[in-house]
Write a protein that binds this DNA or RNA. Structure first.
Lengths: 205, 205
DNA sequence: TCGAACATACCAACTATTCGGTATGTTAGC
DNA sequence: GCTAACATACCGAATAGTTGGTATGTTCGA
């Protein structure tokens, strides 16, 4: 028990902030949820803002570890690896909204004006994750006959834009079930776009 | 001057909440920005939450008026009208981030768990706007030879998902200029997807 | 048409509470 | 016995919301 207060606070931040937002979550909220006293909080983080930065970094490392060990990386076809990533994202849409939405996407929305440090940490997480898709996208592009006008980096960012937008539409929905359905629907459109971009006419039939 | 305190508060909410988020904006912030006293605020809105609901409704009416009068509606080809909508959205990406991002997208992200009333108002704005695109999309679909598997409603929602996601990536960017560039890039991908879906192989060459 | 009755719009000061943060401990492990 | 990891108690500032009052109409009967 002793020695893990910092991790418990970061896990609490990950869950509570996704549900309530950063400004809508008080330090006491986090301490209650992590079953930790305020003294412990300010022992590990010198301010609430510093916790926000640490939570974004925590999110970046834990999620990148999750995706790094995924099985789609073993596929030989780079396009199949990209589609495998999208399918994995689809499989992660489960449970309540706060369980599958994105911490840094939520945080950056309300912190980009107030805290440059949090904004930078969230941006690093989002764009860093996008960059991990770039290699496979570039490899798939290199196999194409006619070179496209768009770049692998912009398409990698597009996957993240669709995912983040899907989460917003899910949050705007009338129920968790409806939100999940819309998120899946939107990831379906993302998959269709990637397939349309890469599959040539003859391949499609 | 007298009699417009309510409108000035709604305009202040539209601008300040887009920059700071709902929870990050205090009632005093709004009163200062609208040059109105706190008494006036609680005369027109019985709570901060009620202002949030009214701001979402205000956003829905003002933005739908903006798009209703746009010139792309005069185009005869329904697909051209859809692409005209996307091009209009691209032209609106200008100035600072808080000036072109979406109020209800920002608000729903942090309010969906805390206030059902605000969540509902934001959802009505987003999905109501999506529905205005459905007619043109359906008309374009009806002109296609082979009927697609996806629906006009889901594609209409997809436009909104990409737009909302583009705003999040813009906010995560290191500068307003970089954010604008990413937003435009992402709307470009959205345009490309719509074109790929509707243009048949022969039309494309 | 005049004015009392009423309604709306707003103001300035106040309250109760919550917030982020701090000061001062206490405990456990090397 | 020294240091990092906590706990307890507290502070000042900020917060949402309230109160009692005033200024500006609006209505309607005599």
């Amino acid at each position: 028990m002793r020695g893990d207060a910092r991790t418990r606070l970061l896990e609490a931040a990950r869950d509570v902030i996704r549900a309530q937002g950063f400004a809508g979550t008080s330090v006491d909220d986090l301490c209650r949820h992590a079953e930790v006293t305020k003294g412990a909080f300010f022992h590990h983080f010198k301010s609430k803002e510093e916790l926000g930065v640490a939570a974004a970094a925590f999110w970046a490392t834990t999620t990148s570890a999750l995706f790094a060990q995924a099985s789609y990386h073993a596929l030989t076809n780079p396009l199949e690896r990209v589609l495998g990533y999208i399918d994995l994202r689809r499989s992660l849409v489960a449970g309540e909204l706060w369980q599958f939405t994105c911490l840094v996407g939520t945080m950056v929305q309300e912190s980009f004006a107030g805290s440059e440090a949090i904004r930078r940490a969230c941006g690093a997480s989002i764009f860093g994750h996008a960059e991990t898709l770039e290699r496979d996208l570039q490899a798939a592009m290199d196999e194409m006959e006619e070179k496209p006008t768009w770049t692998a980096a912009s398409l990698a960012r597009h996957t993240q834009a669709v995912i983040q937008g899907a989460f917003i539409l899910a949050k705007a929905s009338n129920s968790a079930a409806a939100g999940r359905a819309i998120a899946l629907e939107q990831l379906g459109h993302l998959r269709a776009y990637v397939e349309l971009l890469f599959r040539t006419e003859e391949e499609r039939r």
